[in-house]
Design a protein around this nucleic acid. Structure first.
Lengths: 354, 354
DNA sequence: GTTAGCACTCTGGCATCGAGAGTGCTAACC
DNA sequence: GGTTAGCACTCTCGATGCCAGAGTGCTAAC
């Protein structure tokens, strides 16, 4: 009797850990609640099913496993997965063959940096059989490298900002009076001399000092304001674009056979706001991070897990890659894969700055 | 008896049309197979349910309606919807209030042309309660307006192509030998003089004529080749980017309560290849087009319908906007809304070229 | 501490059943 | 001839009950 109430927290002995591990790994592959019998049959535990049942009861008391109903096997709780990820297993590195294949694919999209993050998402999706996520690398504060102004018609011009960090931003400027390309080019030259290499705030300050009396001064001021504002908008925007691929993988998981659940997952996948939030926090920490089920704030995210890792150069440009899958996913494999892909992205970005 | 076999094709008399119309409109709103009784109760048909039953049997014989099972009401076939769209109803114009609201929203994203098509998709989704689709306007053959080359490191440069049609393309060029920004700027100047205003093929020809003996000639040739290739790639790419919003709307339709169907629809929504195909053909025709259920080639698309319309300037840049919804959708409303939004996009694009 | 044995509980699948909806046919009516 | 009332017939859908199977938790023995 003392036995049953023995442990509700504290360190788990090795046998208990082994059994928890077996339950999780069995459940991850089969998606069927696992019972004591299945456990002793498929894993060399060296004890009888009755003993296993005692341990299972302990694990349930500790909140690491649960019971869908009386006569069903155990399934891991979110806390169980968390403990497993935290204390029991190591990440499984991606097999060398797959590493080579992926490197090869990245080699194919020769020097099209805007495609890298998409490819990362696609790759993660196909390797982990979950949804792949990736954002482009975005600087904390962008530096203007160079700007161009091209006329569209005599009242409208297109402003093109090339950033030191590689991105390009475009904006339209409407003009108070008819202006030709020659005048715009002059203004562009003037602004380039003034603000090239500056951040948004620096540029705003420099532009505020433009003397409106000099030739094209007023126009330069007007366009300059737009430049500064565009830069600021870009800085202020979160890592907005979360690209995803392979959402279908997630939807095919048997736990989402119920169409209401399926819809919930899907709306989770479309919840870009929360993904953006996570991405920002992951980008800040610099490590692979795992968010399991209930640990996610939005209700519709409570049935999925995320494994995310940042890439890029802290202080210059950072992005995030990762996967989103059912809570019942193979964390060691997912972590290993995400780690590899973020490392690869690091190499690629380094190449740009080397 | 002759009566039952009376008509399997040919023009439908007005009463028969009215009944078909009633069946479709009732079914579109309720999603329940509609029987003769419901029809006489809710529509002023002026005849008894027995008569309606005769007409329904005729319509079924004509292939315009069908029976899920013996004791159920009728539902429209794809041919029924087609006939309805083709011969019975007119598009319902979007109410003036909504038109105003939408114009207002487009006014908000002041001059950010890259956002227009996204907003179009979002708008279509929220108004029609189906999925909104939109592609950016893409030229058949792009004209280079201006190019920039900026150095990344001494062996790597970024190539920026500004197109007359408004788009910007970027590519990385690796350099055989260390090259500084000054040299790159010179090359940029040289290439600008040579190829500004030209199409991909024209540019390729001009670049082939570069004398490698002149200062920076070899480099200009190398980078020029990359310019021409980037332009050609862009021309060759289909209207690649089909932006969508509100997919959740479609998934909430009761006909997709079954999770397998739901998955099928979703994979339909992700079938960008086919959407791209449709978009190209719609862009070519220049009218609102409706694709109903089985009329779509891919199997997973057989349970959805599309209403698409092109926008932009034929010969310069064209894009497509539209909606994707369950086959059981309100076509008159969808057509009216799509027509309005494509008209609005036309106005916006015209503004760019005026 | 471990194990065999066993009673107990709960699910999931299957068959049965009846109410309800809607049809198609027949025969009468205008 | 077209229209209608009446009616038998068919099929679905939800509720109900039942049974086999799985897995547990407890007890008592090792």
């Amino acid at each position: 009797m003392a036995r049953r109430l023995r442990r509700t927290s504290g360190p788990l002995d090795l046998r208990t850990q082994a059994i928890l591990r077996a339950v999780i790994e069995e459940y991850v592959t089969t998606a069927i609640p696992v019972g004591s019998q299945a456990l002793v049959e498929r894993y060399r535990l060296g004890v009888s099913s009755a003993t296993v049942r005692h341990v299972l009861a302990d694990l349930e008391a500790s909140g690491l496993l649960m019971h869908p109903h009386t006569s069903a096997g155990r399934i891991p709780t979110d806390a169980g997965y968390r403990f497993y990820v935290e204390s029991i297993v190591e990440a499984v590195p991606l097999p060398a063959v797959e590493q080579l294949m992926i490197r090869h694919q990245f080699g194919q999209v020769e020097f099209a940096s805007e495609h890298w993050f998409r490819l990362a998402a696609t790759t993660l999706a196909s390797v982990t059989r979950a949804a792949g996520l990736a954002t482009p690398a975005k600087p904390q504060s962008a530096h203007l490298r160079r700007l161009d102004i091209v006329t569209i018609n005599d009242r409208l011009a297109s402003l093109i900002l090339i950033l030191r960090e590689g991105a390009i931003k475009q904006a339209l400027v409407s003009l108070d009076e008819p202006t030709d390309q020659a005048a715009l080019s002059e203004v562009a030259g003037l602004l380039n001399d003034l603000v090239a290499g500056l951040t948004a705030t620096e540029a705003a300050a420099a532009i505020a000092r433009i003397d409106e009396a000099v030739p094209h001064g007023a126009l330069a001021r007007r366009i300059g304001d737009r430049v500064a504002r565009t830069l600021m908008d870009y800085d202020a925007s979160a890592i907005e674009e979360v690209f995803s691929d392979g959402l279908l993988n997630v939807m095919e998981a048997p736990e989402f056979a119920d169409s209401d659940k399926l819809r919930r997952v899907f709306s989770a996948l479309e919840n870009r706001a929360y993904l953006g939030e996570l991405v920002v926090s992951v980008a800040a920490t610099g490590r692979v991070q795992v968010f399991i089920g209930q640990e996610n704030q939005p209700v519709e995210m409570r049935e999925v897990s995320l494994v995310l890792a940042p890439y890029g150069r802290p202080g210059r440009a950072v992005g995030v890659v990762g996967v989103l899958g059912p809570t019942r996913m193979s964390y060691p494999q997912a972590i290993g894969t995400v780690r590899f892909v973020s490392g690869l992205m690091n190499e690629l970005v380094d190449h740009l700055y080397a």
